[in-house]
Design a protein around this nucleic acid. Sequence first.
DNA 1: TAAAACTGTTACACAACTGTCACAAAAGCA
DNA 2: TGCTTTTGTGACAGTTGTGTAACAGTTTTA
Lengths: 231, 231
Amino acid sequence: MATRSSQPTVLLVEDEPAQREVLAYNLEAEGFAVARASDGEEALLSVKEALPDVIVLDWMMPGVSGIEVCRRLKTRAETRDIPIIMLSARSEEVDKVRGLETGADDYIVKPYSVAEFMARVRKELRRTRPSTVGEELRHEDIMLDAQTHRVTRDGAEVKLGPTEFRLLATFLERPGRVYSREQLLDRVWGRDIYVDTRTVDVHIGRLRKALTQFGGDDPLRTVRGAGYSLG
Amino acid sequence: MATRSSQPTVLLVEDEPAQREVLAYNLEAEGFAVARASDGEEALLSVKEALPDVIVLDWMMPGVSGIEVCRRLKTRAETRDIPIIMLSARSEEVDKVRGLETGADDYIVKPYSVAEFMARVRKELRRTRPSTVGEELRHEDIMLDAQTHRVTRDGAEVKLGPTEFRLLATFLERPGRVYSREQLLDRVWGRDIYVDTRTVDVHIGRLRKALTQFGGDDPLRTVRGAGYSLG
DNA sequence: TAAAACTGTTACACAACTGTCACAAAAGCA
DNA sequence: TGCTTTTGTGACAGTTGTGTAACAGTTTTA
C-alpha cells in the first residue's frame, strides 16, 4: 500500500503548469505532500517509484491520456486501491460515465472551486487513511486528534473542556503565529457571539493549567499588547 | 493614510455572503483584519470611517456599483492611494480595460483560486505596507517576524516591548533611511497621540540596549539635528 | 434527578511598560 | 578654548496589560 509517512501524499497529474501549481499550493497549504507529473508517462513512473495515497488526474493530456493511465493503474493489483480523482473540462454525461467506468473513484468537472476540489481529495483520503486527514495536529510533544477528540502531551492524556480543545486546535493550525484576543474569539467562540475579550485570558489560563499539570514548560506565549501564540 | 495597527486592514465589498465569507476567512487566516461591506453605499461609509489598507471590490452589486465606488474613491485625495482590487464575473477584455481605466490597481476575473486571490492582495499590500506582509523583515543579522512577533539578532532571540517592536519594524521597512522624531511619533505612536519628542530618544535607547545585550555593534545611527536611522 | 463539569464575568494583585524629568555626556560652533 | 545645543540615560511614578481565584449561572452526565 501507500507510504506511511505522517503526511498523505497526493500525486497531481496535470499538464497545464498554472492549474497544477494552484492545486498544489492548496494541497500543500493543508499539509499534504504533493508529487507532480505533467503527462501520463511521468505519472506512471512516479507511481512506480512511490505509491501515493491519492491520485488527481487530468483527462486531457499529451501522450498517454488520463483515462489510459487510470485504466492501467486499476488493472494492476498493487495500485488498484489508490483512489483516483479525474479532472475534466468536458461536462458531457458520456465522459463522466466513461471516466467512472475505467475505475476512477471520483470525477470533477472544470470549472470547479478550490474548496470543492479539496473536499473531494479529503473525501477519498478519508476512505483509505482515516487518521491522517486534517484530523491530527501536532506540535512538539503536544498532539491533538480531532477524530477521537483526544489530546496528549508527551504521551500522557490531557483532559480539556470543549472551549480549551478548540482553542488549542486553533493554535496548532499555525504554531508560532500570534492570535489577538479578537481573532481567537472569532475562531474559537464564533463570529457573532459576544463575549468579553478578557474571557480569552481565563481560558488561556485554563489551557495552560491543563497542559502543564504533569510538569513541562508552558507552551503558550503571551505577547503583550498583541495576543497569544503556541510556541 | 490608513490605520497604523499591527495588522493591515482589508475592506471586502461583496454582496454575496458566501463568497464574502470564504474570502474573509482566508484573509483572516493570514492575519489581516477584515472589514465587510455588502454594497457600494456601505463601502463608502466604511472607508470614511476608517481607511483600509486595501479594498477588494466586487464589480456587480446592487445600488452603487463597484465601478462607481472605485471612481469616487480614486477622485478623492485622501483615498486615492488605497489600492483597489476589482472582482468580476465577466472576462471580456472590454471590462478589464474599463475596470483599470477607473483606477483599479488590479483586476481578478471569476472564477479564481483562493491562492491567486491571496497573492494579489499580498502584492498590493506589499506596495503600500511593506512591513506587514511577507511576514519577515531582515537587515544584516537582525530579523523581525511580524506573524510570530519575534525578533532575533544573529539567531538569538531579542525580547522587545510593544513600542520598541514597532519602532524596529519601522526602521526595518527602509534600512538607512533617516526618520525625524516627529515622523517616528507619527508612525510608531500614531497620528493623534501627543507625547514629547524626547520620548523617542528614550525608546531608541531601550531598543539599542535590547539589540546589543549579547554584544554586537549598535545598529542604530543618530543623525544629529535630524533623527535616527537603522544602519 | 442530583451531581459534576463547564461557562463567562468580575475583582484584585502583580508585572510590564510608558512617558517625563534631571543631569551627564557629546557634538558643534565662534 | 569656552559656550551652546543636542543627545544619552538612570530613576521614578503613573498607567496599562495580564494572571488567576472565586462565583453564580448553565449545560452535561450519570
